[in-house]
């Protein structure tokens, strides 16, 4: 596709603009901003990717991964502001999940060690890991606040911090990973996964595209569960002090 064809596709932006204007939906400003941002951001990514692919230098791949992890951390940390050291716990989780997935993919020769594979797959893995981290942290902080009584009950009966928070931890891990697992049950029935559609449009053999999509699905299962579990087990000890006392989440929020 050329830039000229792309400019014709702006029709698809004009349709909602006209509808918004005539029906007074008030969506014009956001639609224009969204359009400009997506053009600028994706083109920038495109040129950067082209440069990285052409240079075939591992340093640039590494740089891109660091950027992805940095951006993902920045996005997710706000949700866990009440948890001490959440930034480094997120960085640790993202690095671990990246090394785990790429280690298996490259180590077992499943995908070639080129930028063309490493970067898009890492993007999907880290992006999904970020979404999972946000889901998990949201749920976990809510569970702790809503079930503080139960945690105190268990502590007051001589339970350990881990026992006191166990139910909330498990509930949060389940709640955050279920959407990933559920969405994969219906995959392909209604909507073809974006990456697979892209490959087919670009001329790939459908079966090849499906095999590759399956690989991604399996990867994302690992990503989802490992992210929640790891973040959970890194986070819960910081909710207590060395006297096994539950610290007040709200008070630390305000600091």
């Amino acid at each position: 596709m050329s830039f000229l064809t792309l400019s014709i596709t702006l029709i698809f932006v004009i349709i909602p603009l006209i509808l918004s204007k005539t029906l007074k939906l008030g969506l014009e400003k956001d639609t224009v901003i969204a359009t400009i941002r997506s053009i600028v951001q994706l083109l920038a990514v495109g040129f950067i990717l082209q440069f990285v692919f052409d240079s075939e230098n591992m340093i640039y791949i590494l740089l891109m991964l660091i950027l992805m992890i940095g951006a993902a951390t920045q996005n997710a940390r706000k949700k866990g502001a009440a948890i001490k050291g959440i930034t480094w716990k997120l960085v640790g989780t993202f690095i671990f999940i990246e090394i785990l997935t790429q280690g298996i993919l490259l180590g077992l020769n499943i995908t070639p060690a080129t930028a063309q594979y490493i970067i898009p797959i890492s993007g999907m893995v880290i992006g999904n890991s970020m979404v999972l981290a946000i889901l998990f942290l949201n749920r976990f902080t809510a569970e702790i606040e809503n079930h503080q009584d139960e945690a105190e009950l268990i502590l007051s009966l001589g339970g350990t911090p881990k026992q006191a928070i166990h139910k909330q931890l498990i509930t949060s891990i389940q709640a955050s990973t279920i959407p990933t697992i559920e969405s994969q049950k219906t995959i392909g029935l209604v909507q073809l996964p974006g990456m697979m559609s892209g490959q087919i449009i670009a001329g790939a053999d459908p079966i090849q595209a499906v095999l590759f999509q399956l690989l991604i699905i399996f990867l994302l299962l690992t990503t989802a569960v490992v992210t929640s579990v790891m973040l959970g087990f890194l986070s819960y000890p910081t909710l207590f002090n060395e006297r096994m006392q539950l610290l007040d989440l709200r008070n630390r929020d305000s600091k």
């Binding site: 009584d149 001589g158 006297r243």
Partner: peptide, 19 residues
Amino acid sequence: DPVELRRMVGMALQNATMI
């Protein structure tokens, strides 16, 4: 030790929280 102490000093909470 906090665990020993809490077994020795039992507490019934105001709202009788149940699991």
